[in-house]
Design a protein around this nucleic acid. Structure first.
Lengths: 348, 348
DNA sequence: GAATCTTTTGAAAGCGCTTGCAGAACCTAA
DNA sequence: TTAGGTTCTGCAAGCGCTTTCAAAAGATTC
């Protein structure tokens, strides 16, 4: 948009009496219905009128009022996005991509944060519903399946970080099992035999998958699963630090750690640093997510890369598909390993 | 909200025919106007009726439709937030706080990202205007003053990261000069005489303030300002790394660096690490912002702490004040120094 | 108890747009 | 040219709420 365009629009808004569809109709010498139909492509309109209306529209700088539109048509052109917290690099990235994808289709996103609390989530969803969103995207919801299914009876639902099948539901498949496996495989491939794992919150589907991937890799390589090599974190730096300390105090030896996400890895590395344990010389560390900052930790973090942006884009696309009653097919590309410097072969 | 409440609401939404104010009126045996008045407190209503209406409301689980409300009342109960990018920890934090603050007053935020590009910003603002937001919060806008002033003639504007005075404008004062000064003072207080500075983008008001603070501190301590000790970054990890390399290659000696923001500091520390320069033994580093992760870098980063959340809260509060035609007074608390381990006294 | 002043309430007219319905306009075939 | 079809287009009735205006109900005074 050029500067002058914005100026004009601002001026229009300032006047309070924005141009209405009716004024356009009058200007073009047609009825409001006709203008509406042209705007929405709801019916064929004689070419001459279309031209006249378009002329009037640009002359008057008309912009349909979305509020009136929603009320009359029942469509709000906005879709709700429930996220856990906006101030995490991961969710931030997803939201950024979501915003872009929705905006492209002229939808606005209404973002709300559930803070990992079921009741907050419910309130947020209530809020979204009351705003008449046309669909809801749940990014890592903690709500029970049944409730989500029920929700999907009134609006299309897209979810990430878990899978659920249903009529009006689409799960953006971000299966973390494979990525976790990749990370563990890598560590084992480097010769490590005692690989610890710092898990995410025990009840998150996503965290469960990562644990599963870790176990699966161990099994594939015929390595025993040792309960004492697993500590539970909470996906935060702080939790990672605590978990690592617990691991260190546990007395069980290990030469490598796979942290359930990057922030956890950061915390773990700090705990290691505090005890004088060198990464990667004494212990190798691998994370999960590949946050922007992970390429700048010291040492730069080897981590499972997944396109955070991709998740957002897919979710947005899937939602648009659902709204238009197409079957969504968007898939995120599988996770890969970003090999950097926090892990190295076990020295023999 | 309890689970069953949500269920009911979902069901209502699904049915399409949500409970309307008119149904409440009938149920309570009064006119719709009365119900509206009670809801909005627009007029005194006999106590008995108030009770009857409230009873009807809770019996029917009535929730006023915000869309209809906007259309009729001209208020959209939503305010626009223009941010540069959602996937930065700093902006993420601001947005999180903003969301909370607005939600509390029952406003929804419409978030859009300008990506540091004037034209994107204009387009975003146009979008917000077309959604009939009641106010716009600009988080670190790059638009020229005149344009913002013009915008403020049509909707109240709150801005952060720069100051501008005007009728309908409020700048959340986050003067960075003081913080930058604090950081530099600290470094000098630790005995450092050759303190380098990695600046932010040259044209950002905020970055300019940080540079000014750095210079002011130097001047206060009668230290010369050396152009060769300043490198320009772009507020990203990557830019910080490049700037540090440039500094290192510049040939000018320094024992401390003040980076214009934390991400820049991360990059700088990595560059130092790559060259085998130890932090803080060989070079002290101080950042600015105190991102969540900064307590977990290695070594933990000494940095200027400012309440990121505070900024968001203030901005939200100021906007609500502006809308209600009160003079905003919200102020963010001044920056303080979070002393951690990336800086140490100059060894003599 | 009548007259006057307040306070409370309801009827009705929108807010700006969509849409079902039916009349108008146009086209084809006879 | 006219009947019979199609294809446009306008009218008018909403969407669910707010708000003005005037009437109804109470309160107050003499």
């Amino acid at each position: 948009m050029r500067r002058s365009d914005l100026e004009r629009r601002v001026t229009a808004a300032a006047a309070g009496s924005a141009v209405t569809l009716e004024m356009v109709a009058r200007e073009a010498g047609v009825s409001p219905s006709t203008v509406s139909r042209i705007l929405n492509g709801t019916a064929k309109v004689r070419d001459a009128k279309v031209r006249a209306v378009n002329a009037a529209i640009s002359k008057l700088q008309f912009m349909p009022d979305p509020v009136a539109r929603s009320l009359a048509g029942g469509k709000s052109m906005s879709i709700g996005v429930m996220i856990q917290t906006l101030d995490s690099p991961f969710f931030g990235g997803v939201v950024a991509a979501l915003e872009k994808g929705l905006m492209r289709a002229n939808y606005s996103g209404l973002f709300v944060s559930g803070h990992w609390r079921e009741n907050d989530e419910r309130r947020c969803i209530g809020h979204l519903l009351s705003r008449r969103v046309e669909g809801i995207i749940l990014v890592t919801s903690c709500l029970p399946d049944a409730e989500i299914l029920h929700l999907s009876r009134s609006v299309p639902v897209v979810l990430t970080g878990r899978s659920l099948v249903g009529e009006n539901v689409y799960s953006v498949d971000v299966d973390s099992t494979q990525g976790a496996r990749l990370a563990t495989d890598y560590l084992i491939g480097q010769g490590h035999r005692r690989v610890a794992f710092i898990a995410g919150p025990v009840d998150h589907p996503d965290a469960i998958q990562r644990l599963a991937g870790y176990k699966a890799s161990l099994a594939t390589h015929k390595l025993p699963f040792a309960k004492k090599l697993v500590a539970v974190g909470d996906y935060t730096d702080f939790g990672g630090q605590a978990a690592m300390n617990q691991l260190l105090d546990g007395g069980e030896q290990f030469t490598a750690v796979f942290a359930a996400n990057d922030q956890t890895a950061y915390g773990a590395m700090l705990a290691l640093y505090r005890r004088g344990v060198k990464v990667p010389n004494d212990v190798s560390v691998v994370g999960y997510d590949d946050l922007l900052t992970s390429a700048f930790t010291i040492p730069p973090l080897t981590t499972v890369h997944r396109s955070i942006e991709g998740i957002g884009e897919c979710a947005a696309q899937a939602m648009l598909d659902l709204i238009d009653r197409r079957a969504p097919v968007a898939k995120v590309s599988p996770a890969t390993l970003a090999v950097r410097e926090s892990a190295r072969p076990l020295r023999s």
